[in-house]
Design a protein around this nucleic acid. Structure first.
Length: 782
RNA sequence: GGGCCUAUGGUCUAGUGGUUAUGACGUCUGCCUUACACGCAGAAGGCCGGGAGUUCGAACCUCCCUGGGCCCACCA
């Protein structure tokens, strides 16, 4: 050990304790970005994590580790890296968090007060997020954190809305919308998830007008009977031929509805006759539109039936109304039977309750008329890995206009006022942050239609994806610094998970393209998801989530990062495994001990190539090859390659085959000063190189060793040297050397003698250049 | 019903036409060899999901089948 090296004397293994000691140095390095650089610019658009606090998702922490490896490696490859960090702070999750924590209800709390509570919650949670990020040395520009709820960010969101409004890309419409009663707002298709649920399929009779015939209808939504506007039967269905186009009378309500032959009705489902109501599901929406049937809305936005549903159902919740109407139908004696079926139900992904389809007046961002262009863009985009492109394309094919208004509080306000006289919307100029629910419009505001000067503000906010989908514009200062923007947009890389392709990726392309006419990035890197040890998605509700901070405390951040990098190729899902994480920690200890050994020889004098021993030349060639492979991995944003290549090199080549080979020479036992120097020089050469190429993956241990042994500047400010070409023949000879070593070890084992005992064995002629080292290494006797 | 992805020793994972098929974890055996027992050395363990085809040659390319995953549509 290096003389006086306390850290090596006291620590035989790498540990979290040593990381914490290094944290100050590693995390105090500054990563500000300068656009006026001579260097090539590399800019990354990373997901601003939602400010949800602990426990953060272990899979997310692993993904951010990989993203950090990408940023660090690009710096060490000589690029000027724009690596911003943002916090996504808008939207329903924090509102729910605040409601739960303080036991309040958003709509019963004064808006101003509610916003304050949300903001305070976010500030607390945000601190936790930063602590986690810095605990694994996330190296974004923390001096310039952006927050999606800041004035500046919201002004950008609003400006982009205003810009699109002016371009005619925003439409207002009363369309049947996905409505979550719990959230009290419209949600987008992308926010819906489906769940198989058991439900009752109720069979009941309608009378046919002016006849004693009946028709049997089956429905899972009998409470919508009052909104029934038609009955469909299949045109091929013989059972119903005699009632085609006749009029049926709804039970209870006694309304007249037509029986229409339509291919949508499937003869083999239920009774073969389906009632169309406004609105039970998407098909009702389609059919009512297609057949121009009347719309009769009997569910209100509070999730209760209204007076049109009749006195017995009025004011009942949907679920209760469903039970009640079944009783009512039974009282009328028209229920045939009730069947239990499995039903795939659309649910709100946040509140996990079934959505209702209710027509509401909302704003939409036009998508349908540019779907072809979007698909073209999706095909132009460079995707890493390529295979995930299809998820985006599939989604684009089915996506519709995007409803962007939300009836919530904690979000970016829709910057619109309405003329008190004629209701015409007034839209302000871009560039400022507007809060129409509490502020008056700009002083000079005049209604463009009637000249009115009195306005009422819109009280709604935007979908949060309206904010996050312009992150690429915010981090390139689209609104605030034209020069900066021109230097950095489009960005080099978008990094994200596979789970937000249909939201973040899709919406970002849509929005940035509409505003700039370009794709926002050159390439998109899409990672898979972190799963638990059984391959199941981790989630709080399932209780299989793992807190990354606990894992990091136990095994260390570098071990965690190394595990994240080495576990699977980017793009693949990866399973959490404590034993493999432990394996990563063991490898770091291996590296630690390699360094401990080398450090005790001190530094060597510079040596020219000719003076190097053959063994030394060999391992240097190997190191060049390794460097080359790692650089290629980094250039492809693939931390898997360097992590695994370095581990293999250290553990299977360098430590057992090279170090053992030259250890005696490094100690100077029976060798000349030149030979000794050659070994020490080479050991340091290789170690130094390994630390450099490994620094992006494991910033703590590499910095610690760098400081301890080389006492130079921060390793993370260094460049990875360009790989030299390497001598393949010498490498092949080295493989023979490795084989020969194994052969000797196996022979000794066979003979039952210990590794240091002498053995008589012939050294193959081709390995003569290594003879002197080999004799010492294996104690080969004459 | 449509689409996409995937299948490699007990587990996880590399490998895109010619390799004794990679590595990790686990297992077994022997070793505290003055860097490391979180270690060292050795070993066992794979008809590369099944079948057919292309090819001089296939884990790798094509087709079919089967299992797993994801997305979309449908399910009154």
């Amino acid at each position: 050990m290096a003389e006086g090296s306390k850290i090596f004397e006291e620590n035989k293994s790498w540990s979290r304790k040593l990381e914490v000691e290094a944290e100050n140095k590693v995390n105090s390095l500054k990563w500000n970005f300068s656009p006026d650089t001579e260097k090539e610019i590399f800019s990354i658009d990373t997901p601003p994590p939602y400010t949800s606090g602990r426990p953060w998702h272990l899979g997310a922490a692993a993904q951010y580790s990989k993203i950090d490896i990408i940023a660090r490696s690009q710096r060490m490859l000589g690029k000027e890296v724009l690596f911003p960090i943002g916090m996504d702070r808008n939207g329903i999750p924090v509102e729910r968090y605040a409601e739960k924590k303080y036991n309040i209800r958003m709509r019963d709390t004064p808006r101003e007060k509610f916003l304050e509570i949300c903001k305070a919650s976010l500030d607390e949670l945000e601190k936790e997020m930063f602590d986690i990020l810095t605990s694994f040395a996330y190296s974004a520009d923390f001096d310039n954190v952006y927050r999606t709820d800041s004035k500046e960010y919201r002004a950008l969101t609003q400006s982009t809305f205003i810009e699109m409004w002016k371009k005619g890309r925003i439409i207002r419409g009363t369309r049947p919308s996905n409505y979550c009663i719990d959230c009290g707002t419209t949600i987008a298709d992308a926010e819906i998830e489906y769940k198989e649920m058991e439900t009752n399929l109720v069979y009941f009779y309608f009378n046919i007008k002016d006849s004693d015939q009946k028709i049997l209808v089956a429905s899972t939504r009998p409470e919508l009977l009052g909104a029934c506007s038609a009955i469909l039967v299949n045109p091929e269905d013989e059972r119903f031929k005699n009632v085609f186009n006749k009029t049926a009378i709804t039970p209870i309500y006694k309304q007249e509805v037509k029986i229409i032959p339509h291919s949508y009705a499937k003869a083999d489902f239920g009774s073969g006759a389906v009632m169309i109501c406004s609105y039970g599901d998407y098909n009702d929406v389609m059919i009512i539109k297609e057949l121009q049937l009347p719309e009769n809305i009997i569910i209100d936005t509070n999730g209760k039936m209204n007076e049109k549903a009749g006195p017995r159902l009025n004011n009942l919740k949907v679920k209760d109304a469903r039970k009640e109407i079944v009783s009512m139908l039974q009282e009328e004696g028209c229920v045939e039977k009730i069947e239990k079926i499995q039903h795939r139900t659309p649910m709100c992904e946040r509140s996990k309750i079934p959505i209702e389809i209710i027509p509401l007046d909302e704003y939409y961002l036009k998508v349908t008329d540019i779907k072809d262009k979007l698909e073209e863009l999706a095909n132009e985009l460079k995707m890493i890995p390529e295979q995930h492109r299809q998820i985006l394309i599939n989604w684009l094919k089915v996506s519709a206009d995007w409803p962007i208004s939300r009836r919530r509080y904690y979000g970016t306000e829709i910057p619109l006022w309405y003329c008190n006289n004629c209701k015409e919307p007034y839209i302000p100029e871009e560039g400022k942050y507007y809060q129409p629910w509490k502020d008056k419009p700009p002083e000079n505001a005049v209604c463009s239609k009637c000249g009115g000067r009195e306005f009422t503000g819109d009280e709604r906010t935007f979908d949060t994806w309206m904010d996050s989908s312009v992150s690429a514009l915010y981090v390139t200062k689209y609104l605030y610094d034209k020069k900066f923007y021109e230097k950095t947009y489009p960005l080099s890389l978008r990094t994200q998970g596979i789970d937000i392709i249909r939201t973040w990726l899709n919406y970002s392309i849509l929005r940035c393209y509409q505003l700039t006419g370009k794709l926002p990035w050159d390439k998109v890197w899409v990672d898979g998801m972190g799963l638990d040890e059984h391959g199941e998605k981790m989630s709080k509700s399932k209780g299989n989530g793992i807190d990354p901070t606990i894992v990091i405390e136990k095994y260390g951040a570098d071990a965690f990062r190394f595990w994240a990098a080495s576990e699977a190729l980017p793009g693949s899902n990866f399973l959490f495994s404590e034993s493999r994480l432990q394996g990563s920690a063991k490898f770091l200890t291996k590296l630690w001990n390699v360094a401990r050994l080398i450090s005790q020889f001190g530094n060597a004098q510079e040596t020219d190539d000719k003076k190097l021993n053959k063994s030394d030349k060999w391992i240097i060639e190997y190191t060049e090859k390794l460097t080359d492979e790692c650089i290629k991995g980094y250039e492809g944003f693939n931390p898997f390659i360097p992590a695994n290549k370095i581990r293999e090199f250290i553990w299977n080549v360098f430590a057992p085959n090279y170090i053992e080979l030259v250890k005696a020479r490094a100690y100077g036992e029976g060798f000349s000063e030149d030979e000794k120097n050659s070994a020490i020089y080479t050991l340091n050469y290789v170690l130094k190189r390994v630390l450099l190429i490994m620094a992006p993956v494991t910033p703590f241990i590499t910095q610690t060793l760098w400081d301890e042994i080389y006492k130079e500047d921060a390793i993370h400010y260094c460049r990875i040297p360009k790989a030299n070409s390497y001598d393949n023949e010498l490498l092949l000879l080295g493989d023979k050397l490795i084989e020969f070593n194994s052969k000797i070890w196996a022979t000794k084992k066979e003979k039952g003698i210990s590794l240091r005992e002498a053995i008589k064995i012939e050294i193959p002629p081709e390995l003569k250049p290594f003879e002197k080292d080999l004799i010492k290494m294996h104690n080969i006797s004459e």
